[in-house]
Design a protein around this nucleic acid. Structure first.
Lengths: 138, 138
DNA sequence: CTTTACGTTTACGTTAACGTAAACTCTTGT
DNA sequence: ACAAGAGTTTACGTTAACGTAAACGTAAAG
């Protein structure tokens, strides 16, 4: 047990806690920081991760599951923070959102078709299994 | 125009035709062959691609859009050909299908949540744009 | 005949995303 | 006091997925 006593302390995480939670190595987490995707605070030398940083890490890993590169994930994460003051930047932001959306919709179509094909293969395999089980004990 | 005359000739494709169609390089196509994902016939030295090989290429590229490695794509493509004779192999096939399905469903969830977040950001950006256009001409 | 277009093989180069290992510091339990 | 455990930096190694370039063959066109 940790028994940290205080109520107001906003949860923080060590690097190894995050590594365990998400089943990655600390090396990976430091690598993401190197690439500018994470910016944890420091207690002396030691990295301390806020809940917000933990969320950023989750977003990176979700991006990976979707086949995004780290640069793509960074782009997406950067969309979330409200630092888009002027008109030009807002318009470019809307542009990129539209593009990502198109990409995601393509992925949806791809998943749909692949799901269908997998089902076909499954049915064939199951009937083949039944056949062979029939022949097994005549 | 090609004017190949014969009716029965099953369409075939050159490597550069496929490269143009799918907007990839010939190097990429040869690389896939090297990795055992394609096995075109040969007219002398020259590679000749059947419609079936073309489909395999499409499957590889769909896999890429979903973030699959070439090994994963190969696995999936290998599921399609009916070379799964014995019971053990059929059971392992059903296993892998179940796994891929789980992965695809995770991707669906990821896409769904990311879509939702993009919409939020979009709305915020659009209202911010309206605001700044109001201020523009007072 | 030689330029142009398309094809081939071979081989070295490059980038992303980490893995692995060495060498060091700090804290804590026995 | 010291060994164990968790943290750090620095640096070289590795794998996947091609890019790039050289060096060559063949066939049609001017």
């Amino acid at each position: 047990m940790k028994a940290k006593a205080s109520i107001v302390e906003p949860h923080s995480y060590s690097i190894s806690e995050l590594a365990r939670e998400f089943d990655i190595t600390t090396r990976t987490i430091r690598f993401y920081e190197d690439k500018g995707l994470l910016k944890p605070e420091r207690r002396g030398q030691t990295r301390v991760y806020s809940p917000e940083e933990r969320v950023r890490l989750k977003l990176i890993l979700r991006g990976k599951r979707l086949g995004f590169s780290l640069d793509e994930s960074r782009e997406i994460i950067d969309m979330y923070d409200p630092a888009h003051g002027n008109v030009e930047q807002l318009e470019r932001l809307l542009e990129r959102i539209a593009q990502k959306r198109a990409q995601l919709q393509q992925q949806l179509r791809d998943i749909e078709s692949l799901m269908g094909e997998l089902e076909e293969v499954e049915v064939r395999a199951q009937t083949a299994l039944l056949k062979s089980r029939e022949d097994e004990t005549p």
